[in-house]
């Protein structure tokens, strides 16, 4: 049983991170106001949200299964407060930080209409901190974190997210950038 929980805990963590990576990329694409091939903008928006929610579910499974697993020696306090863990407390602490950030981003995302755009957006920006922290946690804490295949994937996703962020900061990021260019003199 423990063996299964341990395996499941690792796999769900990996799946959660992969889904978050995908959601971050879709979020940046969505911000540009562009479509993705045949996908309309509202579908990208829904995909961004739903994939993030699915990632959160896997994150819950990741934490939950490792809590139950005796090998991981995780307790409830470690889930909420970072850097107190028994095994690699720093790298595990990063996971806790990422988890807390995910909680804040997801809750404010779901309550966007009640909180107002300003609060929502301020918190949503934390995603840009959450994602690299989560990735660092996976590399530093994961059993396969320093494995070759994982590092290749990690480098690829850093390139993808980093590229997306650079694109986001560029002058032509917005779909309407060109049309609006002359308007503000």
């Amino acid at each position: 049983m423990d063996e299964a929980l341990w395996a499941f805990g690792r796999v769900s963590g990996f799946v959660s991170l992969a889904l978050f990576t995908f959601s971050v990329l879709l979020g940046i694409l969505n911000r540009s106001g562009r479509r993705l091939l045949v996908l309309p903008r509202f579908s990208i928006s829904l995909l961004h949200r739903n994939i993030a929610l699915l990632a959160t579910v896997f994150l819950g499974l990741h934490v939950g299964s490792l809590l139950l697993d005796s090998y991981a020696k995780l307790n409830v306090i470690d889930v909420l407060v970072p850097f107190l863990g028994a095994y690699r407390p720093f790298w595990q602490g990063l996971g806790t930080v990422a988890l807390d950030l995910v909680a804040a981003v997801v809750v404010t995302g779901l309550l966007r209409h009640r909180l107002g755009q300003r609060t929502f957006k301020a918190i949503h920006w934390l995603t840009y901190a959450m994602w690299p922290i989560a990735l660092a946690h996976a590399i530093g804490n994961g059993t396969d974190g320093t494995g070759k295949w994982f590092l290749v994937l990690a480098v690829a996703s850093v390139a993808a997210v980093g590229g997306a962020v650079i694109w986001r900061l560029s002058a032509t990021f917005l779909e309407t950038a060109k049309a609006r260019e002359g308007g503000l003199r």
């Binding site: 106001g33 928006s45 779909e175 309407t176 609006r180 308007g183």
Partner: peptide, 19 residues
Amino acid sequence: GRGLCTELLPGLLGRDDWG
């Protein structure tokens, strides 16, 4: 002018020169 509403309500809304 992100354009989501114009996709959902094409009969009601178009987009102007700036989106």
